[in-house]
Simulated scan of single mutants.
Amino acid sequence: MDWRTKSFSELDALELYKILQLRINVFMLEQDCLYPECDDKDLKGKHLFAMDQDTCVAYARLLPPDVSYPQCSSIGRVVVHADYRKHQYGQLLMNRAIEQIKKDYPDLPIRISAQEYLKRFYTGLGFQIESDVYLEDNIPHLEMALYP
């Protein structure tokens, strides 16, 4: 497994293709959710991902403050390839994402929009629930934050 963290401009064409392939296959096809996958936030953040040969198996988008939330960094588009979920890659991915964000923005909270069914997973990582359940792309979500 080869873990990488790159800015958008550092991604090569194949890496970008494999990242988008994973995100589209899970968020749009598996979760049957139609939304604008390319939202320009990719251009502003870092991309944390794991490659197993030519397959992107895990991915998270790391965004600087004021892109998704005022005065907060954020982690989004968290996804693990279906064939790799049983190996705890979600936990490893989020631990790496939190570590990178804390390194880049040590004094700021990390805010996420988490799918409600994953609330136990995210609270286990230290995130606090900060909203009632709301629909985002017809999927129940919660706003959550991890404070420094």
Rank of each mutant, 00 (worst) to 15 (best):
I101H: 10
N95T: 08
I101D: 10
E116T: 09
Y117C: 04
L142F: 14
C72K: 13
R120D: 15
L63K: 06
Q115H: 13
N95L: 09
R77G: 06
K86R: 14
Y84F: 12
Y69Q: 06
I98T: 13
G126C: 10
C56F: 00
S131W: 08
D66Q: 07
P106F: 02
C56T: 00
I129T: 14
L63I: 05
Q71D: 15
P64G: 13
Y59D: 01
Q115A: 11
D66T: 03
H81V: 01
G124F: 05
L135A: 07
L118N: 12
Y105F: 15
G126K: 11
G76A: 02
A58C: 04
E136T: 14
A97E: 10
T55L: 07
A82T: 14
R61F: 03
E136W: 10
E116A: 15
D83N: 14
Y134G: 04
A82I: 09
E130P: 04
H81I: 00
I110A: 05
Y134P: 05
Y122K: 04
H87W: 05
V78D: 11
K119P: 02
C56A: 07
T55Y: 03
Q88C: 12
R77L: 05
R77E: 06
K86A: 14
Y89W: 15
Y89R: 12
R61K: 11
